[in-house]
Design a protein around this nucleic acid. Structure first.
Lengths: 108, 108
DNA sequence: AGTGGTACTCGGTATCACACAGTACCGCTT
DNA sequence: AAGCGGTACTGTGTGATACCGAGTACCACT
């Protein structure tokens, strides 16, 4: 699938929140997870900017731990604000995607 | 529903293409249509920038006609390139939305 | 010593929706 | 006729976001 970047704007951050919410994890692994999900072109730089933003906005708790196979990892967990943001994201997604699907089906 | 602007990036243009594709229409009416669809905060300026972009990218054919209730209207129709772009948009949408839904359901 | 995989940072760019101000046509009321 | 509200398009500038590219650095293995 060719360039998805514009369509991912506003949703990729939510996807990262969801991934963190389901399991404490770190940037490099999140990138691989997104690639496996089908977002093959999402690269590390993009994910790290999102993670820094989440941290700056106080949605995550960060813990640095040694890795054993490379440099230390920064593990991310959602805090209460992060869980609220995630819930808001899915509400928005539900709202938007249902309306776009309706338009697509010609029932708009 | 609060601010949807980021989530609409990359999809709003596709929605406008779909609306034009289903019926020859003009900017002001497209805006009202989007508002009725549930995208209440989309304003005229936004739609007009999209329409100018579509025109610049050669995806539409434009016809100016007098209105009777105001200034003349610029009616938009999809040309062949526009129909191809619309098909590509829906393919992308299908691809992205199905994967995000899968992530949401925990089947990612 | 060199290579490749792992892991994070940072400055800059492009694109997009949006804000805002402006222009202009028309029917209606006062 | 003057003003108002609804209709309709244009153009400049802003902010948020994903992406790019280069750099730094740790570690295992050869």
């Amino acid at each position: 699938m060719d360039d998805l970047t514009e369509m991912l704007k506003g949703t990729l951050e939510g996807c990262v929140l969801e991934i963190i919410g389901s399991e404490e994890t770190y940037g490099y692994a999140i990138t691989r997870r997104l690639n496996d999900l089908g977002f093959a072109d999402v690269i590390e730089g993009t994910v790290y900017t999102i993670l820094l933003r989440l941290e700056r906005n106080g949605l995550v708790q960060v813990t640095k731990r040694p890795s054993g196979v490379g440099p230390p990892r920064k593990f991310y967990e959602l805090n209460e604000a992060g869980r609220e943001e995630l819930a808001k994201f899915w509400a928005k997604w539900q709202y938007v995607s249902s309306r776009i699907d309706r338009l697509k089906e010609g029932r708009g």
